[in-house]
């Protein structure tokens, strides 16, 4: 397993043995990326054993990326995924959850439990409304959204630009050139729902096996 900033300042974790099947992995967005990272890493290990190279990118502004998050947009992330695909010579893309909004149809895409950024934003705003209420400050979703669309907003510790907020509301997951892997095919409880991050080795094995099938 290799880690580091490669090929430029983009951060990758990768299993790279110059093999013919090369999978670029687009993580889920924001807090779901933390909840699913262990599962994704173990899936990459299983794919390595199965003869498939893989690279997990950090979207600019997230995780170890040196870029400032408040300057990022979904359009920018699509561009970053395209560049990473070229740098890694990817043959396929796996996008997890709302990461599915950051892919284009240039390569065959596998979408694991795809989720729209609009739904994720809705849930993040709800969390903010509830935490404000706990602190005895009443603020409505509409007020927060109006402010967010003009000035950006911090939700769950992530500072989102106004452009990011607007784009999250209007983006849909593309079904062109893509195959969906539903959670029901993997089995077990969805790990992105867990209040505390958890791991289930069987789910990583099942996801790797399904990816191997779809890439053969």
């Amino acid at each position: 397993m290799l880690v580091g900033t490669w090929p430029s300042d983009a951060y990758f974790v990768r299993f790279d043995n110059d093999r013919g099947k090369r999978l670029l992995i687009v993580p889920p967005l924001f807090d779901e990326a933390n909840k699913l990272r262990h599962m994704i890493m173990e899936t990459m290990r299983a794919l390595n054993t199965a003869g498939i190279d893989s690279a997990l990118i950090d979207l600019p502004g997230t995780n170890e990326s040196p870029e400032p998050l408040p300057e990022q947009t979904l359009h920018g992330w699509i561009g970053a995924v395209e560049q990473s695909c070229k740098a890694f010579s990817a043959t396929h893309i796996l996008a997890v959850r709302a990461g599915a909004a950051c892919v284009t149809a240039a390569l065959p895409c596998l979408l694991y439990a795809p989720h729209s950024p609009a739904s994720q934003l809705r849930s993040m705003i709800r969390a903010r409304v509830l935490s404000e209420r706990e602190a005895e400050r009443e603020v409505s979703r509409e007020e927060l959204l109006a402010e967010a669309e003009h000035e950006g907003i911090t939700l769950a510790g992530y500072h989102l630009s106004a452009d990011m907020v607007r784009q999250m509301q209007g983006f849909f997951v593309s079904e062109v050139n893509s195959t969906t892997i539903a959670q029901s095919e993997i089995g077990g409880a969805p790990l992105w729902l867990r209040a505390e991050p958890d791991h289930d080795p069987d789910q990583s094995k099942a996801l790797a096996a399904r990816i191997e099938d779809l890439m053969s």
Partner: peptide, 28 residues
């Protein structure tokens, strides 16, 4: 303790999806 505002928001969104309902924030 693990049911904080983020977890509650996730819980309610998942219930909306599975039960095909819409929960307004002021109902919470």
């Amino acid at each position: 303790p693990e049911l904080d505002s983020m977890a509650v928001a996730g819980l309610l969104t998942e219930l909306e999806d599975r039960l095909d309902i819409l929960i307004e924030d002021d109902e919470v």
